[in-house]
């Protein structure tokens, strides 16, 4: 078992819900300060986006963050170097699209991620069937490849995904791209289906944007992933100090 999964299982077994916020690397000049603020607020782990030009699972907010980051000249290697510079004290999960790693080379990506202290990756366009070579590349480097389950995933597929999953299972709360929503959607049903086939921690994401929704996610699952709500505010100029205060409300 890799360290990310161990960490999240320990939290779950101790009855702690996990708040996992997402920020896009390079979207604002002081993005590292915001990450540290999130950790100070009590994030169990942080998800760091590496910008890609064509993010097909992202809604307008994260698209805007990716664009801002790319315009600022962010590169994958630059992000990894920045993450390697100083440990955050909680697990770092990198989220990006497969072409970024494919282009760098899978071996090289795995090695750079390892050196940066990254302990998990979420690659939304790399599903189970295509993930073989990638998972081989990260094997032995203490990096978990997190898989998603969607409301549309049929039972047999959930079973297959659950068997191959590492770290935690990402339960997509709705049939949608990332964004801010009014409720937690179909999260309950998706989490139930995952639970039938896996004892891994299950985190709810896609649309979770208020402390109330996060608390509901904590009541049905082991954690919540919050991206667009946070990214939107940071893009609008929220300071790192304000980020810490905003994030505290999501921590139980």
């Amino acid at each position: 078992m890799n360290s990310l999964e161990r960490h999240l299982r320990e939290r779950r077994d101790a009855g702690q819900s996990s708040f996992v916020p997402y920020l896009m690397a390079g979207m604002v000049p002081d993005w590292r300060d915001h990450l540290e603020a999130l950790v100070a607020a009590g994030a169990a782990a942080v998800e760091v986006g590496v910008p890609f030009s064509d993010p097909i699972l992202d809604g307008v907010v994260i698209q805007r963050a990716a664009l801002a980051s790319l315009e600022a000249g962010t590169t994958p290697e630059g992000v990894f170097a920045e993450l390697a510079r100083r440990p955050l004290g909680v697990p770092v999960i990198v989220m990006t699209y497969f072409n970024i790693f494919h282009h760098l080379g899978m071996e090289r990506s795995a090695s750079l991620l390892h050196d940066a202290g990254v302990s998990g990756v979420i690659i939304p366009d790399l599903t189970l069937e295509e993930a073989g070579p990638w998972r081989e590349a990260v094997t032995g480097r203490d990096i978990d490849t997190v898989l998603l389950v969607a409301p549309s995933s049929p039972e047999a597929r959930v079973e297959k995904i659950a068997r191959a999953a590492q770290g935690f299972v990402y339960a997509a709360s709705r049939m949608a791209v990332t964004g801010q929503a009014e409720d937690t959607g179909d999260a309950g049903a998706v989490v139930d289906r995952v639970r039938r086939h896996s004892d891994l921690p299950v985190f709810v994401g896609i649309g979770i944007s208020t402390p109330e929704q996060a608390r509901h996610a904590y009541s049905i699952a082991d954690g919540a992933i919050v991206g667009s709500a946070l990214v939107d505010r940071v893009l609008r100029g929220m300071s790192a100090l304000e980020t810490e205060a905003f994030a505290r409300d999501f921590v139980l």
């Binding site: 939304p124 366009d125 790399l126 599903t127 069937e129 969607a150 995933s153 597929r157 997509a172």
Partner: peptide, 20 residues
Amino acid sequence: EDGRFGDFGGRFVPEALIPA
């Protein structure tokens, strides 16, 4: 079944679209 043309092709989409 996997839609390969040599090294190319395949299916790289979000999980939500796999059933479709």
